[in-house]
């Protein structure tokens, strides 16, 4: 018996890409205008206000018991003071000679500062606020570097555990002192 073959169209065909190209050509310039290669973020640095501080202090009695402040001097020495229920504890991190330049430039010893900050954090895991009193001559770049150093634990460190005041549950975090407040802005 003879097989009847039906006539079919050619199996290959060409897709009309012109409209698609039109759309892409319109989108590309728009995206090119809004493209960014540098991501901008922010560092929180609220300024203390007398009333606000009094209210905050009244609300958070526990926080008021322990206060951590950090001072950076002109010669890049860092002095961290912890006031624990009226008792002062001081930690000094002297500046060191820069390893990158040979002109005898003194820089903040960031590794030593980090180690001190970690030790303080492990002792006071529920304190997140740090008062920052840098010297007037220090450039912003140095201040940001110091703030970065005390903000977070490095990824290879074991996290800090503290108890949540509201729920009473233990919480693990890698944050050290994320709330940095410029303490000497309003008179000081």
């Amino acid at each position: 018996m003879r097989i009847q073959r039906t006539r079919t169209d050619d199996s290959t065909f060409e897709l009309n890409l012109a409209p698609m190209l039109d759309i892409i050509v319109s989108i590309v310039p728009m995206l090119l205008l809004s493209v960014v290669f540098v991501r901008i973020t922010v560092v929180d640095t609220p300024v203390p206000q007398a009333v606000e501080q009094a209210v905050a202090a009244a609300n958070e009695k526990n926080k008021d018991l322990v206060q951590v402040s950090m001072m950076v001097t002109k010669d890049r020495a860092v002095k961290i003071t912890v006031v624990d229920r009226g008792q002062n504890k001081e930690f000094d991190v002297p500046g060191k000679l820069s390893a990158t330049t040979t002109d005898g430039k003194v820089v903040v010893d960031l590794d030593a500062l980090y180690q001190k900050a970690v030790a303080i954090k492990r002792e006071y895991p529920d304190v997140f606020r740090m008062e920052f009193n840098p010297d007037e001559s220090l450039p912003l770049e140095d201040l940001v570097v110091v703030m970065d150093q005390v903000r977070k634990l490095k990824s290879n460190e074991t996290k800090v555990q503290f108890t949540d005041v509201t729920s009473g549950k233990p919480i693990e975090t890698d944050l050290m002192f994320p709330d940095v407040v410029f303490g000497n802005v309003a008179g000081g």
């Binding site: 901008i40 973020t41 929180d44 640095t45 609220p46 300024v47 206000q49 410029f182 802005v185 309003a186």
Partner: peptide
């Protein structure tokens, strides 16, 4: 410090520093 102090007096007490 002067800028932050002045902005605090003008009512802008929550200063955020933009960084890369």
């Amino acid at each position: 410090r002067k800028v932050m102090y002045t902005s605090m007096l003008a009512g802008y007490s929550d200063v955020k520093i933009a960084v890369m």
